[in-house]
Amino acid sequence: MKILYWNCCGVGNPATVREFRQLLVANVPDIVFLCETKINSNRFQRIRSICRMEGCLAVDSVGKSGGFALLWRDGIDVSVQNYSNSHINSLVRLENEDVLRFTGFYGQTASRSRQQAWDILRRVHHKVNEGWIVGGDFNAILNLSEKEGGRSKPKVLMEEFCNILEELKLTDIKPCNGWFTWTNNREGDRLVKERLDRFVASDVILDKFPFLASYVVRQSRSDHEAILIDTKGSKPNRERMGHKAWFRYDTCWAGEQELKDLISCIWEKEESNMLAKMDMTRDKLGPWQFSRFRNLKYKIKGLEKEIIRLMDGRTDD
């Protein structure tokens, strides 16, 4: 089960919709929670259709702020329980008939509204009889390591957030990559970075899904990064062992003369039938791809680490 959360800071323009689609294609989430959509719920049906998500519940924005949406793909059994201007609460039935609760949450910044938002989570907690995952923009940090630049957060607010998680028996799921999820995108001494977006989970979830992992997914159009939680995230994938498993056609192969020669040699053999030629093609292309492109993933990981170092490192010239 994969759940994606993104504070999209407005999803009404075509460029953001395109980025949202790319986000879905790259990560293939089962459930998506969006906040700050800044559009009317009626307009969201078109976005749901464009992004090919089967189910959708959208909450209207208030003027040019707010707005939520919970989407899920075909085959996922989601039952929305309740929602407000701070949350969407749902039950998700898994393939093994187990049920988990997912609550998409948006923490308010004003003192009174923030307390009301915490109270909503308390009311949800009273009804929880299953594993519980909460994900969203909490607009709060747990300690000073989750903020760089700008004025220090008041200690009382950090303690309040810690106490809320302890009261609700929820554990912060630290990401496997990256750290800060929001930036004000300013330069020099005015740059501020904070970890505002996160997933938290109950002990039942942590016990049931020992390979649970969370990831920061870099974005370009929003000042918030997306975050992803995967219940099988760190589980070893034994199915992709061996050269044959590497056979995944890529359009960049079309310009490879070596590949063309390899395929031509196989299909020019008159003594082999079509099925045999297809088997030989697969058997040859797996090792060829492995030897030709195995270094690319290491280069990509190296570049991703450099991006993380720049985004999450100390701010300097």
Score class of each variant (00 low, 15 high):
Leu142Glu: 01
Thr251Met: 11
Phe20Thr: 02
Asp98Thr: 07
Ser86Met: 09
Ser84Gln: 01
Leu4Phe: 01
Met158Thr: 06
Leu262Ala: 03
Gly136Leu: 11
Ile227Cys: 09
Glu239Phe: 05
Lys244Ala: 08
Arg43Tyr: 11
Asn163Ile: 09
Arg292Asn: 12
Ile300Cys: 13
Trp253Gln: 08
Gly313Thr: 00
Ile263Asp: 06
Ile229Gly: 04
Ile3Thr: 00
Gly135His: 06
Val32Ala: 03
Ile308Glu: 15
Glu270Lys: 14
Cys56Lys: 01
Gly63His: 09
Glu130Tyr: 07
Arg221Thr: 08
Asp60Ala: 04
Leu206Ala: 10
Met1Arg: 02
His87Thr: 09
Lys269Leu: 08
Asp98Val: 01
Lys127His: 13
Glu97Ser: 11
Val17Met: 05
Arg238Phe: 10
Leu275Ser: 12
Met1Ala: 02
Met53Arg: 10
Trp182Asp: 02
Arg292Phe: 03
Leu4Gly: 02
Met1Trp: 00
Val32Gln: 01
Glu167Asn: 13
Phe105Tyr: 13
Trp72Phe: 05
Glu194Leu: 05
Ile88Trp: 01
Asp74Asn: 10
Ile88His: 00
Asn27Ala: 06
Glu256His: 08
Ser214Arg: 07
Asp230Ile: 06
Met280Asn: 09
Asp279Phe: 08
Ile173Ala: 02
Cys162Lys: 14
Leu303Ala: 09
Arg73Asn: 12
Arg190Val: 01
Trp182Phe: 05
Gly67Arg: 01
Glu146His: 03
Gly313Asp: 00
Glu148Trp: 01
Lys147Ile: 07
Arg114Gly: 07
Val216Tyr: 00
Arg198Ser: 02
Gln289Cys: 14
Ser152Thr: 11
Gln257Asp: 14
Cys265Phe: 15
Thr181Phe: 07
Asn40Val: 07
Arg101Asp: 03
Gly313Arg: 00
Ile164Glu: 09
Gln45Phe: 08
Asp207Gly: 12
Asp316His: 15
Ala201Pro: 05
Trp253Ala: 11
His243Met: 11
Ile229Ser: 04
Lys174Gly: 04
Val78Gln: 06
Ile173Gly: 00
Trp179Gly: 11
Trp253Leu: 11
Asn163Tyr: 08
Ser272Tyr: 12
Pro287Gly: 06
Gly10Met: 14
Pro29Lys: 08
Asp74Met: 06
Cys51Ile: 14
Ser113Ile: 03
Asp172Trp: 04
Asn27Thr: 14
Lys232Thr: 05
His125Trp: 12
Ser264His: 12
Asn13Gln: 10
Leu24Tyr: 05
Ala254Ile: 15
Trp118Phe: 15
Val204Cys: 03
Ser49His: 02
Gly286Glu: 12
